[in-house]
């Protein structure tokens, strides 16, 4: 049954289905029982494919930290391999179709080993951070957290699962430093929350790109209003890859407040209060 299930899951993702018994033996071994040789091979492959977003030791960055015993999209061995091979639609995680079952086993084994490492420590006080979020930061003007706030910027209820402390600190003090991405199976990995500027005969519009094709662009301004423009009718249209519309809080918050805010965001793991 497990074998049948894995076949269905793999084929559902459009992945490669091994037929040789030997390959299945490798593919169905528990990841915790991975050999030192496979672990080393997995580390090499991880370095090429995964480290750019997840960090070489799984500390996270653009992608979530993997130094957690239980990954939200990949709680077990099979789902971990499925995620590595097929990606996570609607997120920045792309698939890696060229990984065969042996390589999937090796990379997944290495990722699993990262989960045994110590989790990060919070740099400050999460409770104080929540207060900063709600008052001085006025973050709910642009972010939704546990259903509360305005949906201009990223939803934050699970941000503690996705980002490490270093990334969160940078996001607060210098939001332009990182550009969140979303993986599209057909269009490649695209910037989400990309700042765009459109100048039409009615004026200049600045906002976040929601979607775009060759002929039109859909954007949302900071008040939450959605616009759709025909590119041919615009006087100009530009993408500002290096600039986030979120203001930097480096000047507004002192070091302690920023650390507290980071600590609060680290606690956000999808639990509804």
């Amino acid at each position: 049954m497990i074998r049948l299930l894995s076949i269905l899951l793999f084929s559902a993702m459009g992945l490669l289905i091994p037929s040789a018994a030997q390959e299945f033996n490798i593919a169905t071994k528990p990841l915790t029982a991975i050999s030192a040789e496979d672990l080393s091979a997995g580390q090499d492959r991880y370095g090429v494919l995964c480290a750019r977003c997840h960090g070489m030791l799984g500390e996270g960055g653009e992608g979530p930290s993997l130094k957690r015993p239980r990954l939200s999209y990949a709680p077990d061995d099979e789902s971990l391999k499925r995620v590595i091979g097929g990606g996570i639609p609607g997120t920045g995680m792309p698939g890696n179709w060229a990984l065969g079952p042996t390589e999937l086993h090796q990379v997944a084994g290495y990722v699993k080993s990262l989960g045994q490492l110590d989790a990060e420590e919070a740099p400050g006080d999460a409770e104080k951070g929540q207060l900063v979020y709600e008052t001085k930061g006025n973050c709910s003007a642009c972010h939704i957290l546990r259903g509360v706030g305005k949906g201009i910027g990223p939803e934050l209820s699970e941000v503690g699962l996705r980002r490490n402390s270093e990334y969160l600190y940078r996001s607060i003090t210098n939001p332009s430093a990182d550009q969140p991405k979303v993986s599209n199976r057909f269009r490649g990995t695209l910037n989400s929350f990309l700042t765009v500027r459109a100048v039409s005969e009615y004026g200049t519009f600045e906002g976040l790109r929601i979607n775009e094709d060759e002929f039109s662009v859909q954007m949302r301004d900071m008040s939450g209003k959605t616009y759709s423009f025909d590119k041919a009718k615009l006087i100009s249209y530009e993408k500002d890859f290096g600039h986030s519309l979120m203001p930097g809080y480096g000047a507004l918050l002192n070091q302690e407040e920023a650390d507290d805010m980071v600590s609060f965001l680290m606690t956000l793991k999808g639990d509804l209060e």
Partner: peptide, 25 residues
């Protein structure tokens, strides 16, 4: 583009590496 070791097994991927495409943007 990256290169990896690979051994031929009938009916299994025989690739010896892979690629990570640049972002769509």
């Amino acid at each position: 583009y990256y290169k990896a070791d690979v051994e031929y097994t009938p009916g299994a991927p025989f690739l010896g590496g892979g690629e990570q495409a640049l972002d769509g943007d």
